[in-house]
Simulated assay, not measured.
Amino acid sequence: MSNPDLPPRIPGDRRGWLTFTAGLDIALQNAEDSTQAADFDAGTQKRSRPATDTEKTLLRALGLRLPEDRPGATEADRLHTTVEFLSSTLRRRTWPALADQTPTP
């Protein structure tokens, strides 16, 4: 996936870094909607899972450096997403491996 043009982010949003002021390109939005449905269907309040290709594309587009992109990276460096439901429908995604970075506004 190429580096997409993204709408402005909503800074400080409780849902996490991948919240934007407008919809994404249709393919990205469909993938994000599918991931949200799968996270909801998993039925757990908090869990960790491998980051999706779409999440990784969006994070890279925000200027973040993923551990798996480093030279010599191994399967152990694969990016994981922490999914937490703050309420029955409010999902927050974080990436502990990226905690020392700040996304581009």
Rank of each mutant, 00 (worst) to 15 (best):
E32Y: 10
T89F: 09
A97L: 11
D69P: 10
S2L: 06
G12Q: 08
E84A: 15
T21R: 14
Q45M: 09
P71T: 03
D13M: 08
A38F: 04
A42C: 02
S48L: 06
A97V: 12
G43P: 12
L58E: 06
G43C: 08
L66D: 01
N30H: 13
D33S: 15
D5E: 13
L86A: 12
I26R: 12
A42T: 06
G63Q: 02
N30V: 11
T81C: 09
L79D: 08
A61R: 03
I26P: 01
V83A: 14
L64V: 01
T89V: 14
A61P: 10
D100P: 13
S34N: 11
V83S: 07
R15M: 08
D39M: 12
S2Q: 09
L86D: 10
D33C: 14
Q36T: 09
R65Q: 12
P96A: 14
A22W: 00
D5Y: 07
D69A: 11
A51H: 00
S2M: 05
W17E: 02
T102N: 09
L90Y: 11
A97R: 05
A27S: 10
E84T: 15
P67T: 04
R70D: 08
L28W: 06
Q29S: 07
P8K: 12
T44L: 09
T104H: 14
T21I: 12
T44M: 06
N3D: 15
L28N: 13
T94C: 04
H80A: 13
L90D: 15
D69N: 08
G12V: 08
A61C: 05
D39S: 10
Q36P: 00
S34R: 13
P103N: 05
Q29Y: 04
M1T: 12
R70E: 13
L58V: 01
D41C: 03
A22T: 00
R14E: 13
L64N: 04
K46H: 04
V83F: 10
P4A: 03
W17Q: 03
D39F: 09
L24C: 03
S48M: 08
Q36F: 12
N3K: 13
T82M: 13
L64S: 01
T82E: 11
Q36E: 08
D33P: 09
S2C: 00
D41P: 00
L59P: 03
D33Q: 15
A22V: 00
K56F: 00
P4F: 01
S48K: 02
S2Y: 05
P7Y: 02
T74G: 09
I10E: 03
A22Q: 09
D53A: 10
I26N: 06
A51Q: 00
P8W: 05
G43H: 11
W95F: 15
E55W: 00
A97N: 09
P105R: 15
P50S: 02
R14I: 04
Q29C: 05
S34Y: 05
L79Q: 06
L28D: 15
T35H: 08
Q29R: 07
L66W: 02
A61I: 06
R92Y: 05
F85W: 13
D25L: 11
D77F: 06
D13T: 02
R15Y: 07
L62R: 13
E68I: 07
T35V: 05
T44N: 02
P105K: 15
